[in-house]
Design a protein around this nucleic acid. Structure first.
Length: 951
RNA sequence: AGUCGCGUAGCUCAGUGGUAGAGCACCUCCUUGACAUGGAGGUGGUCGGUGGUUCGAUCCCACUCGCGACUACCA
């Protein structure tokens, strides 16, 4: 084995072997007994997208769960796939065409869609290739794409069934219209940001005059250009200022039309002038009011948001913002502008195009949502689906209770074509295909045209948990894996996706699509900012794995910017933050990092330094394994074998350290099990980290050395220790595997031949003789490892002796190579017994030259000292320790002790505490106080001695 | 306006009704045969503020300050 772990070489090789072995597919049902099923649906990423940190994060968690359950023996399916992402993908291809000076209309629908398929073919493998780098153990043999024929069939089936039940309808409504994409979008695809604008106060003259007033009413508006589509002015019915005008007509400036004044309680008399212009065709509230009052709807825009033939001639063809300028100017010249105030308003913009969304009257298809939402709401209230953490269910409830009908048609070309046909008289027919429609409605040879629109991408995503398993057929996979076990996703798509899967799953499968929804936080940069191209703070997970040179990183961050002028700033920042570029860390380090950061679904400020820490952890594990293998096999530092593992077989005596590490391992496994069951990946990671580094490496490996390297040890003792080393390491690799699949596999392959005889002899609990990959072995279980309180107590005491001596050594700067003598004074029978048995450990780990228990009354040299229980540890100072330094050190320890003693005395002299606190707590404090007092007394005496003798 | 969350060591974050923890950074010593991506020792926090409940609050409650997210509305 190499001296350092170098992940780059081995990860790809290992992944290819896993994938080609078929080990990612769910185990088949065993004869006779039913194996529990475990299933996760991968949230399908955009087929033409690339992997980002959010994916790396979520995929790591899903893979950890998947590997864990697979090792626990469940029949485990992690279903992969990609999403056609209608708008996003279509836009990418349109931009490509644009670069060639073409437009999709030049190509025509068929050729354009063909071109998108071609693009999908070229770029669709990028993200799946990147997923492989992360080690994701999805069942690639079941890979799906939302526009595959079988999934498209499910989409059509759902549409037709919902339509037949009256849950899908077509209607002319006001929709969110994107005038750049030329399509309707759903409420969720509209983002409203606060922007600076103006409030224009415009005078509308009263027809026939207004003797009791000024002769006009003033309306306040943020969109003066929509004046051309006004069909009323509304006032609050209780507003005394305008009551007399209700029912009268107003002159609508610039149009020659007159419009009525109406009364509606929606109007807030306190805002603006208290008069509102009503434009039913271009404002959602006005639309509703228009319906209430039977007002006409005048559409004044073309699909590209230019003024149409319903506007006066001089404005026709103008863009809405040009029209605004002209209209305001024309009103001003007529003296009809009372004032213009600055005003902050929320401007709705398309989430893809950033274009200002126009409320626009069009024919669209809608899903009637209330009947679907109710069961979906109830399923979470009943706990059939649980959110983790639970507070997200509140967010879910809020939305489900206020949800509106879902506009599912999109005026795009890339997507699932709506299965509806029109005849020339306006008849609409919905069916699975044209033939079915003709038959069902006896349409004969009548000319039919299919609806040109496609469905919202989320329509097909909503079916993902069952469409991928073969629905509408009743397949074995559906029976086995639906409902799925858990959905792992970000809170940002609870509404887009989670809620819709709940509704569709309950509707068509009669059950929830998943039992748990684990909501992850968002990965942000180290300052808590969202990672985005324009901020130039994006870190590609693959660059963390493989590393990237500074220039390449700068190039990556500064090319293809929407706003190229940001490039110099981004470059400067990047060069400052990563002067050396990014070093390679390996996949396992990245995975361990995100697992360790995955706590409580809060957002994660991603700190590259932590990945470095876990890369070191990989190296630690690598070297610990190297030590074990060298110890067992008698190999040299180049890894050449010079002996077999036969020495492991035969009689074995277990040392206290052997029993201790097994006991600690059992404890670790129970922590990990509890943590993973609770989706506390951070707890699982830290339990494993702490065991591996602080117990196995720092203590156990060191404690084996005095046994293995001493001629005083019997061969049975050495064998017991060697065997324990192999057993614990092999099982530790299995325990770490779900989080760190690559390094554990690589090491396990080397440990396996050594462990094989032990496995065959039944000495390795839970290991499978036939498994040729660690991912196919069993996850270790706490109950398979013996707890040993006696060993734990004893090792704790041994550690205490060692730590106290090290403390003296450390603070006195005694070099590790310098061996020192240690004397023990006032050691009672118990302490003498402990030391008698374990002197070899203390001697070795504390770097002792000699260890001597003093007789009562024996004279002592001037020494540096420490206390363990009632025993005083003395390190003679001659030639080693400076008296002044020891006086300082003792004074510091005494001061700390006295402060603790003060606190404890205060607490114990409080009657209420003694009366009310748990008795065992009071007892523990009393014991602690007594020990501290005795030790401090001893240290004070020692301090006096050093003072007298040293001066 | 409503809902949710956050504020703990220089930085990134865990945590608990009983004398505060990790990683990174920092200081000292050390290349000892697993590992300098390392070892040993150490520095560092009145747990945002005020008040309350309690024998005891960083933790529970109220208020408050600062920050963030989401939903709705703003003519």
């Amino acid at each position: 084995m190499d001296k350092a772990y170098t992940p780059g070489d081995i990860e790809r090789r290992i992944y290819e072997r896993w994938e080609s072995s078929g080990a990612f597919a769910p185990s088949s049902t065993q004869e006779g007994g039913e194996v529990p099923a475990y299933c996760i649906m991968l949230p399908p990423p955009n087929v033409t997208g690339t992997l980002h940190m959010g994916h790396a994060f979520q995929h790591t968690l899903m893979d950890t769960l998947t590997r864990w359950h697979r090792m626990r023996g469940d029949s485990t399916l992690w279903q992969p796939g990609t999403d056609h992402a209608g708008i996003a993908t279509q836009m990418v291809v349109e931009r490509q065409l644009d670069a060639e000076g073409k437009h999709r209309l030049d190509l025509g629908r068929e050729a354009f869609v063909e071109r998108v398929w071609k693009w999908k073919g070229e770029s669709g493998s990028t993200i799946t290739r990147q997923m492989r780098r992360l080690g994701t153990s999805v069942d690639w043999s079941r890979d799906k794409f939302t526009m595959d024929p079988d999934l498209s069939r499910a989409v059509t089936e759902v549409f037709v069934r919902l339509h037949d039940e009256g849950l899908i309808y077509r209607g002319k409504r006001l929709v969110n219209w994107d005038p750049v994409l030329l399509t309707a979008v759903s409420d969720l695809e509209v983002l409203a940001e606060e922007e600076n604008g103006s409030l224009w106060h415009i005078k509308y003259p009263v027809v026939g005059g207004d003797p009791s007033g000024t002769g006009f009413v003033v309306v306040a508006t943020t969109r003066p250009e929509t004046l051309l589509g006004d069909t009323a002015v509304a006032v609050n019915p209780d507003d005394d200022r305008y009551r007399h005008l209700v029912g009268k007509q107003l002159e609508l400036p610039l149009t020659g039309r007159t419009i009525p004044v109406i009364a509606d309680s929606y109007v807030d008399a306190a805002f603006g002038s208290g008069c509102v212009k009503i434009t039913p065709a271009h404002d959602f509230n006005d639309y509703d009011m228009g319906l209430r009052h039977g007002l006409p709807q005048i559409n004044i825009f073309t699909p590209t948001a230019r003024l149409n033939e319903n506007a006066p001639e001089e404005y026709r063809g103008l863009d809405r913002f040009e029209a605004r300028k002209k209209i305001v100017a024309d009103l001003e010249s007529r003296g009809l502008i009372e004032k213009i105030e600055p005003h902050k308003l929320k401007v709705p913009r398309g989430d893809r195009t950033n274009a200002v969304i126009e409320p626009y009257l069009t024919d669209q298809w809608y899903v009637k949502i209330a009947p679907l939402a109710e069961p979906a709401l109830k399923a979470v209230e009943d706990g059939r689906t649980k959110f983790v953490p639970d507070n997200w269910s509140r967010t879910y409830y809020e939305w489900m209770r206020n949800i509106k009908d879902w506009c599912v048609s999109r005026q795009l070309w890339w997507g699932h074509r709506i299965p509806a046909w029109y005849d020339e008289t306006g008849g609409i027919y919905v069916g699975r295909d044209e033939a079915e429609v003709r038959k069902k409605h006896s349409l004969g040879e009548r000319k039919l045209t299919q609806d040109a629109d496609v469905l919202d991408t989320w329509f097909s995503s909503a079916l993902w948990p069952f469409s991928t398993l073969g629905w509408p057929d009743t397949t074995a996979e559906l029976r086995r894996f639906y409902p799925t076990s858990v959905l792992v996703t970000g809170f940002d798509i609870i509404f887009f996706w989670v809620a819709r899967m709940m509704m569709m799953g309950l509707k068509f499968m009669g059950d929830v699509p998943f039992k748990h929804v684990y909501i992850t936080g968002l990965i942000r940069d180290e300052n808590g900012d969202k990672m985005s191209k324009s901020k130039g703070n994006v870190i590609d997970p693959i660059d963390i794995i493989d590393g990237i040179a500074l220039d390449a990183l700068v190039a990556k961050r500064t090319t293809g910017l929407m706003q190229p002028h940001l490039a110099p700033g981004i470059e400067k920042k990047t060069r400052k933050q990563f002067p050396e570029g990014i070093a390679p860390h390996g996949t396992d380090a990245l995975r361990f990092t995100v697992a360790a950061l995955a706590s409580s679904a809060r957002d994660i400020n991603f700190d590259l330094g932590r990945v470095g820490g876990y890369r070191n952890f990989c190296n630690k594990l690598w070297n610990a394994s190297r030590f074990v293998l060298m110890t067992i096999q008698g190999v040299d530092a180049q890894g050449n074998l010079s002996g077999g593992s036969g020495d492991l077989m035969g009689d074995a005596d277990l040392s206290v350290a052997d029993r201790w590490i097994v006991s600690r391992f059992a404890d670790t496994l129970s922590k990990v099990d509890a943590a993973l069951n609770d989706y506390r990946f951070d707890f699982a990671a830290s339990a494993l980290y702490e065991f591996t580094w602080y117990e196995f490496c720092d203590w156990y490996l060191e404690l084996t050395k005095p046994v293995l390297q001493s001629e005083a040890s019997t061969s049975a003792q050495k064998r017991g220790t060697r065997r324990t080393l192999v057993i614990v390491l092999e099982a530790l690799l299995r325990a770490l595997h779900p989080i760190m699949p690559f390094i554990t596999e690589e090491i396990w392959q080397r440990v396996r031949p050594v462990a094989q005889p032990l496995i065959a002899a039944g000495q390795v609990r839970g290991a499978r003789l036939d498994a040729d990959s660690v991912m196919l072995t069993a996850y270790p279980v706490a109950g398979e490892y013996a707890r040993d309180d006696e060993a734990e107590t004893q090792v704790a005491a041994i550690k205490d002796y060692i730590l106290k001596v090290r403390q003296i050594r450390g603070e006195m700067n005694i070099a590790p190579s310098r061996k020192i003598p240690l004397l023990l004074r006032d050691a009672d029978a118990q302490a003498q017994l402990l030391i008698g048995r374990n002197a070899h450990y203390v001697q070795r780990l504390a770097g002792l030259e000699t260890l001597k228990v003093m007789e009562a009354g024996e004279a002592e040299p001037i020494s540096a000292s420490a206390m363990v229980g009632n025993t005083t540890l003395l390190v003679p100072m001659a030639g080693l320790i400076d008296a002044a330094a020891e006086i300082d050190r003792l004074t510091k320890v005494i001061r700390k002790n006295e402060s603790d003693i003060g606190k404890l005395r205060g607490k114990l002299s409080n009657d209420s505490f003694v009366k009310n606190a748990k008795p065992e707590l009071v007892d523990a404090d009393r014991a602690k106080l007594a020990e501290l007092e005795a030790q401090t007394e001893g240290l004070i005496k020692q301090l006096e001695r050093v003072r007298q003798l040293g001066s």
